[in-house]
């Protein structure tokens, strides 16, 4: 009976450690996806001059899950036409925050990009895209460095913490 409890505790804390490590990994990956999404959004805007809602819909089909949901909710909100682009962007960003591992500083960069969306001409817009991409690049660099440093630490700390707890409790 004691052994069973000990196994449970160790499994749980190891799981927590792995979940934290996975969060770090996901953040880097989602930043990369976001970068790709904004690049293809720029391509839609500059080369084919698609309207924003449709462009976002197309972008949402090109990128993997949490980022694609963000773009599809944004394009849905635009197509309903009940709010401005910035409001729709903010609202979709709030749902992205709940479903992704991105941190506040990453979301701020994306929010800043949304504020410029649909307000300027093509050239200005392109500059904004470039600025946003470089900002996301910086965030991604920081995220991957953090991932490299802390991923193994979280994993081993989870396991060792569980072990310590069982030894103390037995």
């Amino acid at each position: 009976m004691k052994l069973l409890g000990a196994i449970f505790i160790i499994c749980a804390s190891t799981g927590i450690g792995f979940a934290l490590a996975r969060n770090l990994k996901e953040r880097t990956k989602q930043l990369r996806d976001m970068k790709q999404a904004i690049t293809s959004l720029e391509a839609e805007m500059v080369y084919t001059m698609t309207p924003l809602a449709e462009a976002c819909h197309r972008v949402s089909q090109q990128v993997p899950s949490p980022v694609s949901t963000f773009f599809s909710t944004f394009s849905d909100a635009l197509q309903k036409g009940e709010s401005s682009a910035y409001q729709a962007w903010t609202k979709s960003l709030a749902s992205l925050k709940a479903h992704s591992c991105l941190q506040q500083s990453d979301l701020d960069v994306i929010l800043q990009f949304g504020a410029s969306l649909g307000q300027q001409d093509l050239e200005q817009q392109q500059k904004q895209v470039k600025l946003t991409l470089s900002n996301i690049d910086r965030q991604e660099l920081e995220a991957s460095e953090k991932q490299k440093r802390s991923e193994n630490m979280y994993k081993s700390l989870g396991f060792l913490g569980g072990l310590l707890m069982t030894i103390i409790l037995i």
Partner: peptide, 17 residues
């Protein structure tokens, strides 16, 4: 046991700065 595990945690944390 506590000593061994804590020594390992100490090493891991120290490695990560």
């Amino acid at each position: 046991g506590v000593g061994i595990v804590v020594a390992m945690i100490h090493t891991v944390l120290k490695q990560m700065g």
